[in-house]
Structure formats: structure tokens, C-alpha cells
Design a protein around this nucleic acid. Structure first.
Lengths: 217, 217
DNA sequence: GACGCATGTTTTGTATACAAAATCAATTGA
DNA sequence: TCAATTGATTTTGTATACAAAACATGCGTC
């Protein structure tokens, strides 16, 4: 479940795939940016073969778009497409919140709280890269609480694809603290064990998040 | 939206990917079966390179599982994993039914009815390959009615992954006719424009379908 | 008869070469 | 000055080669 096929594993191609995914999620490679096989091979110090495989896999997951014989670009979206993607993501996250509220174990709850404590700490320190990682761990722990690896996969796939747009939300330390604070409100609802309140709370959280994404893109 | 990256397109790798997907969905390559690069290259009359790319992409989409340096296998699931996958699929299909009921256009409705008519015709003729294609078109037209390409993608991805298991439901002409009949009941609910009735009807449809999948696997 | 080890064969991951297609830049003509 | 065309360069898709790892088979010993 965790790390699926994209985690750094034995093959060179898998390592490159994971590293590119991280760069895209962090906004270091922006939406619409073109990815040059030859240059990436030079960057990673390998031949084009594992680079091509990594790019091909990212395209199969929707993170990249393949222009036939025109190279690969980071998937780019119109505002309408962005809205539709976030609508789908909202529904999936609401489903996650509802199932998490229904199935919360002590272990899952402690993981979520640990991740949220890390979010709070890095937000206060103004540590953006640290906050991005902690935010990621927070959401993944929520998905994990659904106790369904396939729903986990869908939700985490959406996080990967929307990474470049969500990274832009956090322009100032104030943004990080606001985000961590909204996590607290969301958790209060999930921990209430009322799955409908949890789902509604997640929709609110996601709507607020999406408004910030639209403003930043 | 339709055909996404898997439709037969310019490159050899994409054609091979689509063809393998079709074989897996139709049960001609069964769950757990090992896929040999060298043999597939001979089958398609090409070098290993486009075959490797096609396999890699199918692995990225969860259709195949990659054993590190141990080749690829069609993803195989325990009964628990199958149950979880179908749970996720049920929730996605219920979401589709709810959104389709809310957003149904005349065009979408006519497409759904045309697909259902084809299901009924091929079921009566005992035409299994034809029924599989018509059934596919029926479900895709429902997903399309959500007017959200990302939800469409999730739902159709699940159909791809569960193809090998669902194909086994249809062992006799009676199975085809029963399936087409349950479509009618589902459509009555979707066309009722009550999105909650639509979602519930889809869950019923999917639960009945899943019971048949479990019995056949 | 079963288990372990060794050897040979096959498969997979990556490097490199080649051809075709796309892109870019420069020149010419209107 | 701008647009179009042409030529050169670069990038992409696929073929092939090579090395490493995995798998299968056979033989020997217990």
C-alpha cells in the first residue's frame, strides 16, 4: 500500500520515477514544463532507457502527458479541468473521512495525531519543505485509516497529480499555520465518530484548500 | 477522456498496451499469469523495447504487478483484497450513479439507452464477446454522464483492473440475460433523477455483481 | 526418495546505435 | 519588417547487444 510502485526500490527506473514525482509535487518542475529525456539522463548519470521507463510510468499515472513524438510534459489543466479534478478529489477525500470515522483504530488515531503534531511544529518554524512532507504524511495517514488500500491508492494518486498546484498555496508562514489549524478542525470532526460530520468537514477543508489553489494558479 | 492513453495510437507500445489490456479484461490472460517479454516480442513481431514499455505502463496502472527482476504478472488478489477492491469500486460507481442522476443530459441518456439496447440484443443472441463489449460501453456511458473526466478515469481504471474476475461471471447465456435485466432496474433508478435512489440502486447492482464474481473465482 | 549444490539456460535491466520525426534558426522574398 | 521555406540540429521511438540476476535441471549424497 504505502509507497506502492513509486517508492525507491531496486531498479534505477523506479528511483528516477520517485525523484521526479517529488520534484513535481514540490513545484520544482511546474505544470506544463517539458521533460527532456536526454537532459534527464545526463542529470541522473544514466542512459535514456531507465529515464524513458520512469517517464512512461508517470504518464500512465496521469502525472505527465505524452505528446506523440513530442516528448513529455507535466500535466497541465484549464481552470475547468482543475475544478473537475478537485471535485473528484473532494468526493474521494470525503469518502476517506467517512470511512476513517467509521473504522478508526487506536493505532490509526495515534499516527494521525503524530503527523499533525509534525505539521504544527514545521508550520511554526516556517519550514516549508518540512511542512510539505508533514502535510503529506498527515493526509496519507487519513487515507490509511480507511483500511482499504485501493481507496488509499486513489486518494494518494490524486495528491500526486495535484501536487504542483497545491504547492503554490504556501507562499508565507501564515499559510502554513492556517493550513495546520484547518487540520485541527477537520480532525475534531473525524474523531467525533460521526461519519457524515467527518465527510462534510473534509469537503469544507477541501473547498477552502481549493479556493487557495485557484488563487495561487 | 475516452480511450485515454491506452487507446491504439501512434506508437507501437501503445498498441501493444491496449491489446494486452483487452486480453486481460476478457480473461484470455488470467490473474496471476506471468508475462514473458521475449515471448510477447515474438507474438507482436517487434523488439522487446515497446513490449517493455507497454508492460511498464500497465504495471503503473495496477493491472500488472512487477516482481523486481522477476518479470510481470497479472495482478492477483486474495478474497480479502478482492472484497476491498470491489468495495472501492462500489463507492466509485455509487458516486457515478449519484452524479449521473443529477446531471443527466438528453444526449447522455440516449447514449446509455443505445448501449443498453445493444446489451439486450447480444445477451439474447448468446454472443459473449459482443456482450462484453456492449456491457463495457454501457458502463462507460454511465461514467461519462457524470460530466467529470477524472471520475470517469477512476471508474474505468477499476473496470480494467477487475476485468479478469468479472469475465468469469458470464458462464451461460442465462448470465448475460440476467445481467442485462439488472441494467434495466438500475437505469430505472438513475432516470428517476433522485440521486440517492440512483446511488443505492448502483450499490445493489454492484453487490449482486460482486457475489457472482466471488462465486466464479 | 528427498534435499542441496552446481551448472547451464533464460529472462530482465540498462547501454548504445540508428532512423525518423520534430523543432529551431537563418535566409530570402514580398 | 514580416512571413515562409529550407536546412541543420536535436529529440524521440525502436532495435540490438551485453551483463547480471533468476530459474530450472541434473547429479550426488544422505
Amino acid at each position: 500500500m504505502d509507497g506502492k510502485d513509486a517508492s525507491p526500490r531496486g531498479s534505477t527506473a523506479q528511483r528516477i520515477e520517485a525523484e521526479l514525482l517529488e520534484d513535481i509535487a514540490a513545484g520544482q518542475i511546474e505544470a506544463g514544463a517539458r521533460l527532456d529525456e536526454t537532459k534527464l539522463a545526463a542529470r541522473f548519470g544514466v542512459s535514456r532507457t531507465p529515464v524513458r521507463e520512469a517517464l512512461s510510468r508517470l504518464a500512465a499515472q496521469g502525472v505527465l502527458e505524452s505528446g506523440d513524438r513530442r516528448g513529455m510534459r507535466v500535466a497541465q489543466y484549464t481552470r475547468e479541468e482543475l475544478a473537475q479534478m478537485f471535485e473528484a478529489m473532494h468526493e474521494i477525500e470525503a469518502l476517506c473521512a467517512r470511512l476513517a470515522a467509521q473504522r478508526l483504530t487506536l493505532l490509526a488515531r495515534s499516527e494521525i495525531e503524530a503527523a499533525q503534531a509534525e505539521c504544527t511544529r514545521t508550520a511554526r518554524d516556517g519550514d516549508l519543505p518540512g511542512y510539505l512532507r508533514a502535510n503529506e504524511a498527515f493526509h496519507l495517514s487519513l487515507y490509511r485509516a480507511t483500511e482499504n488500500p485501493y481507496i488509499f491508492d486513489i486518494a494518494s494518486d490524486f495528491r500526486r497529480r495535484t501536487g504542483p498546484f497545491r504547492a503554490k498555496k504556501f507562499a508565507a508562514t501564515g499559510d502554513l499555520i492556517a493550513s495546520a489549524q484547518s487540520h485541527e478542525e477537520l480532525l475534531a470532526k473525524i474523531f467525533s465518530a460521526d461519519s457524515n460530520i467527518a465527510a462534510e468537514g473534509m469537503r469544507e477543508h477541501m473547498t477552502a484548500s481549493f479556493m487557495r489553489v485557484l488563487a495561487a494558479n
